[in-house]
């Protein structure tokens, strides 16, 4: 494993996980997504490329959204475990409500256009306007407009 790759991994892994987590809303899944993203990067790109961080940030949102849109088994497991939990453990209602909220946000994000979901995930993970713009391949002056539109759409989707 090259030094360059290790340095890049150490520098960007926490952020990539954070971005993925904003979409998948599950820490373990977010870490899986992050691993896939770094592997995909390593196959074709140099760790010294100036665009590496932006590429990783963007790929994290894409991979996380693909994960959410493709998943079915997890939803079934959640339903099953929630039903079981509700019947076996009184007092876990709050946890179930929280899970439902997470799922609602996750599904709403999955219904948004990719770039709208991406701009929300990137900004809420703490990326600056400049970093968000670099990841999305747009001018920094566009980020405010993209954010505003994405926020309006997310609220509309969540209310459905």
């Amino acid at each position: 494993m090259s030094d360059g790759f290790e340095r890049l991994f150490n520098a960007e892994y926490p952020r990539v996980v954070s971005i993925a987590n904003r979409v998948v809303r599950d820490r373990a899944e977010a870490e899986d997504v992050a691993q896939e993203v770094f592997l995909a990067f390593s196959r074709k790109h140099s760790p010294f490329a100036d665009y590496a961080p932006a590429w990783l940030h963007r790929a994290a949102t894409n991979a996380a959204l693909n994960q959410v849109r493709g998943r079915r088994r997890r939803e079934q497991r959640e339903s099953f475990s929630q039903a079981g939990a509700a019947s076996a453990e009184p007092g876990v209602d709050e946890l179930i409500v929280q899970r439902e909220e997470q799922r609602a946000v996750r599904e709403a994000l999955a219904r948004l256009p990719k770039r709208s979901a991406a701009v929300l995930a990137l900004r809420s993970s703490g990326l600056t306007y400049a970093e968000t713009a670099a990841a999305l391949g747009v001018g920094v002056g566009q980020v405010g407009t993209m954010l505003r539109r994405a926020e309006a759409r997310l609220l509309k989707e969540v209310r459905k």
């Binding site: 494993m1 290790e6 991994f9 150490n10 892994y13 926490p14 996980v17 954070s18 987590n21 904003r22 809303r25 820490r27 977010a30 870490e31 992050a34 691993q35 770094f38 592997l39 929280q98 909220e101 997470q102 946000v105 929300l120 995930a121 809420s124 954010l147 505003r148 926020e151 309006a152 997310l154 609220l155 969540v158």
Partner: peptide, 26 residues
Amino acid sequence: DAGRVAVLMEGSGKVTADPAPALSAL
């Protein structure tokens, strides 16, 4: 709206991932 979305996106809270075990796993 920005405030509402910030709450939604915050979700289950911040995740702080340690790269060391992930690199070992890799």
